[in-house]
């Protein structure tokens, strides 16, 4: 993969992070427009880096952990920018941009070589499974972002002590509704990601569910988010509890993604091997 492009991408994400942080302190309309644009710049360069890889090798760059991380980061930024168009939630960028920067930085920490894809993995299943799963997780990153904001805002309102974030953050009602929106989008994507993954596992390994650590961690998150979504729809599970559950679910995804592979070796590609 083109390392130079990825480096430039990281620089852009860093610049965007800086711009978003300045926006927190100095909430000017200009910064609110500029920061997402810088992020968009990084996203486009990122896209070209991933695109170059895809056209050269014919499959997305997800075989190595660092590649997967970069790919995930790309999806997350993309989904955020899409939602920014509709909801103008610049403050959410203050969480997404630093996350994106850290992810792209972390991707470098694991070497720069390109993984070779074993020929038996070169199928459309890979593209389908990876896209769905990553898209789902990207949407959950945003759910994580708004939930974090919810907790911060709710803490200020309960403690009756406010700081600079109070004025910038949207109302609890808005944040809670966004949590629901992201959940409603993310959950089906994740479900499909798990189904395609498991079908594929069935073709390759002979059984659909082999209690692979990767499958287990996805399963936990899926159950958690499923329960949350069910609770939201049927019994008024919302607000702080919903925010905490969202953050927990995301922590499981991210935790396994970042650490799990080394602790619980998995046959799943994109983990430490």
């Amino acid at each position: 993969m083109d390392v130079t492009l990825l480096k430039v991408t990281a620089v852009f994400y860093l610049l965007a992070t800086g711009s978003f942080i300045v926006y927190l302190v100095l909430p000017k309309a200009l910064l609110s427009r500029l920061s997402p644009l810088i992020l968009l710049g990084g996203f486009l360069i990122h896209t070209s880096a991933l695109g170059v890889h895809f056209f050269q090798s014919g499959y997305p760059a997800v075989t190595q952990f660092r590649e997967a991380l970069s790919f995930y980061c790309w999806f997350m930024v993309g989904v955020y920018l899409l939602f920014q168009l509709k909801y103008h939630l610049t403050v959410l960028g203050c969480i997404i941009a630093p996350l994106a920067f850290l992810m792209s930085l972390a991707a470098f920490a694991f070497g720069v070589g390109t993984g070779e894809l074993p020929p038996e993995l070169k199928t459309y299943w890979l593209l389908l499974h990876v896209t769905l799963a990553f898209l789902g997780n990207a949407v959950f990153s945003l759910a994580f972002g708004v939930s974090l904001m919810y907790l911060l805002q709710e803490f200020q309102l309960k403690k009756k002590k406010t700081n600079v974030l109070y004025r910038l953050f949207p109302s609890l009602e808005t944040l809670d509704r966004l949590n629901y929106v992201f959940l409603v989008w993310g959950f089906p994507l994740m479900t499909l990601g798990i189904i395609t993954g498991s079908l594929w596992a069935g073709f390759r390994w002979g059984n659909y569910w082999s209690w692979d650590p990767r499958q287990i961690s996805s399963g936990i998150t899926w159950l958690l988010y499923g329960a949350l979504l069910h609770g939201r729809i049927t019994s008024g599970l919302r607000g702080k509890k919903a925010a905490v559950l969202t953050i927990l679910g995301f922590a499981v995804v991210l935790g396994y993604f970042l650490l799990g592979g080394s602790v619980f070796p998995s046959r799943h590609a994109g983990s430490f091997e």
Partner: peptide, 8 residues
């Protein structure tokens, strides 16, 4: 002001 931070 507080009401506006709780409600949309």
């Amino acid at each position: 002001d507080r009401a506006k931070r709780i409600f949309d």
